[in-house]
Computed example of a mutant assay.
Amino acid sequence: MARARISDDIGRAAISAALADAPSRDDTATAVRYLLQLLAERAEGNTVEIRVPPFGAVQAIEGPRHTRGTPPNVVEMNASTWLALATGRETWDDAMADGRVAASGQRADLRDYLPVTPARMDP
């Protein structure tokens, strides 16, 4: 069964709250999941698994489909790094250089897919 889609209004509100000084865990979780949802919608596919524990994970990007075991292409980071990358407040190269993103596999490079900030919202 597919996850319920987070609406744009709820997602945008959660992003704004999550980027505030003292976000709630719920706002952070919703913002992370919403931005993962946008990435999966814009980069449809099943080649790369993007993980932001403990809040969510999606498969995205066109290419060979992964179905069992550990995926060959995995990107993992914490919520604050994902929020910064997905909203354009941070660059992929800077996050990689600082070691805040763990990326394995030849397709595990998200720079062409970031930021994923929704329309009608400033990064």
Score class of each variant (00 low, 15 high):
22 A>M: 11
114 L>Y: 05
111 R>Q: 07
27 D>A: 15
42 R>Y: 02
8 D>W: 06
123 P>T: 13
78 N>T: 08
45 G>I: 07
108 A>G: 07
55 F>W: 15
30 T>Y: 00
118 P>H: 08
7 S>N: 06
96 M>L: 13
34 Y>R: 03
94 D>I: 12
63 G>Y: 04
11 G>T: 00
90 E>N: 11
52 V>F: 02
121 M>K: 11
37 Q>A: 06
78 N>K: 08
12 R>I: 13
74 V>R: 15
55 F>A: 03
109 D>W: 05
24 S>E: 10
16 S>N: 14
92 W>K: 03
63 G>P: 07
68 R>F: 15
121 M>C: 05
42 R>K: 12
44 E>N: 04
4 A>K: 12
10 I>N: 13
81 T>R: 04
45 G>W: 08
114 L>T: 07
59 Q>L: 12
12 R>W: 03
67 T>P: 02
95 A>L: 08
79 A>G: 01
88 G>W: 11
102 A>M: 14
105 G>M: 06
12 R>A: 06
82 W>K: 00
108 A>T: 11
99 G>N: 11
14 A>G: 00
47 T>G: 13
32 V>C: 01
52 V>W: 00
91 T>S: 15
112 D>M: 07
22 A>D: 14
37 Q>Y: 08
6 I>F: 00
117 T>Q: 11
114 L>A: 10
27 D>N: 07
93 D>N: 14
6 I>S: 03
102 A>P: 03
45 G>K: 12
31 A>L: 07
31 A>D: 04
49 E>N: 06
36 L>C: 05
33 R>C: 07
24 S>Q: 03
68 R>A: 09
62 E>P: 06
112 D>G: 09
42 R>Q: 14
116 V>W: 01
40 A>M: 01
62 E>R: 15
30 T>P: 01
57 A>I: 00
1 M>C: 12
51 R>A: 13
104 S>M: 13
4 A>Q: 12
105 G>I: 12
14 A>L: 04
98 D>Q: 13
71 P>K: 05
43 A>F: 00
97 A>C: 01
115 P>M: 04
88 G>F: 05
